[in-house]
Amino acid sequence: MTNSLNIEQNLAILDRMLLIRRFEEMLIDLDQDHDFGHYHLYIGEEATGATVVESLIPTDLLLTTWRNHGHLLARGTNPGRMVAEILGRVDGYNKGRGGTLHLTDREAGFLSTSGLVGGAVGLAAGAGFALKQAGEGNICVVFFGDGSLEEGVVFEAMNLASLWSLPVLFMCENNNSGAISAQEGGFPSSEIAASQISDIPKSLNINSKLVDGADVAAVHTVVTEAVSNIRSGNGPVFVEAYSERWPGSRPLWPEQATGVTQVASAWDESLLTGEHKEWIIEFDPLIRFIRNQLAEGLFSKDELFDRDRKIQTQITEARAFGEASALPDPQSALDGVFAA
């Protein structure tokens, strides 16, 4: 897919993808030290989140799921405060009450983040409704997995969005392909009788697109068009962004299956030795993007190393910030049960 993005945009996307990758690699390590409960990583799907936000404006709203770190980081959320939340500390975005499953950042436009499959999609229709009423041209993006299409509430919400032409972008991140099998402790591949996922929104008269979610340029083209359609009042769009599931993605505790990412493996395959070499070469969206952009001359290898280093420093600081943050005071336990 040819790249309609300009240099600044491509560099911004590169930074976002690197940030997400380094953040989540750090999380795997963080969990060894802190055992913060079960969590879900976005590795392998970064190109989607990092690119979708490029087509949004600051006043748009977003909703997401348990697999939310990438979406928040892409939107500019502070990684230090994210670590704090994941560790259940006071400086976290939810003051430690939500954790990784419910990370939200109001400033960045995020509403509730749902731990329930399909939960965010119902809310998204409501956010779209409010935005339409307000009439200021803002839209709502909801990220959800392929599994959500097995929940009734998702159909009900899509029916309403279609019927009332609500400004909602349904971003279905289908990571089903290559999902580790149930025998190995993974969620089984999603169980949808539809031969094409998009037949389902189509049956509700929702404009539906299919895109390779690991291809930055392709995602950008499809999402930009979708967003402009939605913003001009033509109703919701459903985008299925498919990706090949990252081999480390297990339902409860992810594993560092592909090793810490070496950006140089984009041009030097000899750096790759592990059993998941093929996944990295063929499907890793970050490595794919770097390879393409190097070929296009977007940056030099040195510039790339430089950016990566800066981001790694940022992540180290974020981790330190989160770890230094205090646990919430027990006295605060009752705060916020009811709104004032």
């Binding site: 259940g88 976290g92 003051k95 430690g96 009450r97 646990l327 919430p328 005071d329 336990a333």
Partner: peptide, 12 residues
Amino acid sequence: PDIPVPYSPSLE
């Protein structure tokens, strides 16, 4: 107590 169950270990 009548509170949503918080995540942070110190509150949970």
